[in-house]
Amino acid sequence: MTASKDHILSQLRKQSVPASELPDLQQAELTQQWITYPDLSEQFTELLASIKGLCLRVKNVEEVNQRLAELPVYQESKQICSLIPNCGQPNVNVNEITDPHDFNDVDFAILPGEFCVAENGATWISNDGGPTRTLYFLAQHIALIVPASEVVPHMHAAYERLTFENPSFGTFMAGPSKTADIEQSLVIGAHGARSLTVFLVDDAF
């Protein structure tokens, strides 16, 4: 195996490739050109709606609970998980589950999101790698709870916030799971969540 490594590297080093410079993505000439929006959370809400997600701006966790209760998919959910204290009426105890397969029947999961990106409607989530990581993808419906102050304009600003020093898992989630693989007809709910609601919450929670 090291033989293959050595072979590939020596093969590559044998080639004469003209040197090329790496652009500085922080330089002002570039950063000044990146798109800006007058109201980040408004832009995020609009964008998320265009990719079939829903964004609700609320004052606090109590209001999240009220709005959740109004959502038909939440009302119909039998198994509910929540990773946010005092949020929702969870009836599955997340702490008791060690095998991610046991989340198979979860209908609704209320999960933390770290920040949102206005340009594309994505929310960054990260997970320490325990079984709860599966919830983001296996639950039928998902609500992400994000502090309202945490909306960045674009992906460059998003990566300014991210470091990957330690082993970790994180993903940008933009709307519910979807596919257009059959004749380009958009169908929501391919393998992951059938619906995605992002709550932008004003007060600390």
């Binding site: 320490d128 898992f169 940008f172 933009a174 709307g175 979807k178 257009a180």
Partner: peptide, 20 residues
Amino acid sequence: ATGQPITTYSSHFHGPKPDG
């Protein structure tokens, strides 16, 4: 690729799960 602003999931993998 498809005219979407970003794919639904853009997952960043840095190392295995604790037991994986």
